[in-house]
Amino acid sequence: MLAYIVRRLGGAIVVLIGISMVTFLITFAVPGDPARMIVGPHASMQVVEQVRHNLGLDKPLYIQYLNYMGRLLHGNLGYSYNDNLPVWTLIRQRMGNTAQLAFGGWIVELAIGIPFGLISALRHQKLSDYVVSFLATFGFSLPAFWLGMELIYNVAYKLHWFPIGGTGGIRHLVLPAVTLGIVGAAFYQRLIKASMLEVFDQDYIRTARANGVPPFRVTFHHAFRNGIIPAVTYAGMDISLLLGGVVLIEQVFNYPGVGELAYMSINNLDVPVIMATVLLAAVFVVVANFVVDILYAFIDPRITLS
C-alpha cells in the first residue's frame, strides 16, 4: 500500500512539473507583452522597460521558469501583474465560491443522473427509459451559457425566485448549480444505466432473484453497490474538473470563482495567475484520481492496489 502511494505521488509530481513547464512556455509563446499590458499604451518605453526589469521579464526564459519554481516550492505563487495582489489571496478569495458551485452542481448532477440511470436500467427499452434518456441527452446538448441565460431570464427576472447572478448565499447558488447539474446529469444517467444493466446480468443477481429476494432489495442492496462504482470514478474526476474552473457558468452568472479568474488572467496575460490556476486545476485532477483509486479498494475489495 505504502509503495503504491509513494509511486503514485512520484508520478503526480512529474505530471505537475510537466504541466508547469508547458503552461509557462505557452504563456510566452503567445504574442503580447505583460509589461505593456500593465502600464498601458501611454507609458514611455523607459517605464515599460523598468516594469519588465522589476518583474524579471528581461531574464532568459529558463531563468524565469526556475525562479518561478523556486518561489513555488517556498509556497509563493507570486503577485498578480494585473491586480497587484498576491496570487494566493486572489485564489483563496474565489476558491470557496468555486468549491460551493462545484459541489452544488455535482449534487444536482447526481440528483438527476442517478434516478434517471436507475429508471433507464430498470425499465430498459421501455417508454420511461426512452423518456429519461431523451431528457438527459437534451439537457447535455444545451449550451450552458444559453441555459444559464434562460434560467436568469425566466426564473430570476420574471419570477423573482432567485437573484440575477452574483454571490451572497445559497439563493445565489441555486441557478448556476442547476445549470451545471442539468448539463452534466446525462453522464451519470448513461454510466449508471450501463453499469446497472451489466450488474443485472451477473450470476449473483440471478441467484438472489432465484432465491426470492425482493426486487427492491436486489436492486439497491446487491446491484446498486457495484453498479455505482463507475459513477464514483467519474464523480471524482468530475468534481476536480469543476473545481478547476467552470468558466462559462461563472461568467454567465457573474459568479466570482477561480474559472472566471483564469479567464480574466488569460485575457490580461497575467502569467502568475495563469500558472497558478492551471496548476491548481492539475493538482485537483491528480489528487482526485489518486483518491478515487484508493476509494476503489474500499468499495470493491476485489480490486487490489498492486
Binding site: 503567445v30 503580447g32 507583452d33 505583460p34 505593456r36 499590458m37 499604451p41 485575457n267 490580461n268 496575460l269
Partner: peptide, 11 residues
C-alpha cells in the same frame, strides 16, 4: 487577436 496581442502587434 486577444487584446494583449493586438496591443503588442500594433506597437
Amino acid at each position: 487577436e486577444s487584446e494583449s496581442s493586438w496591443l503588442q502587434d500594433n506597437t
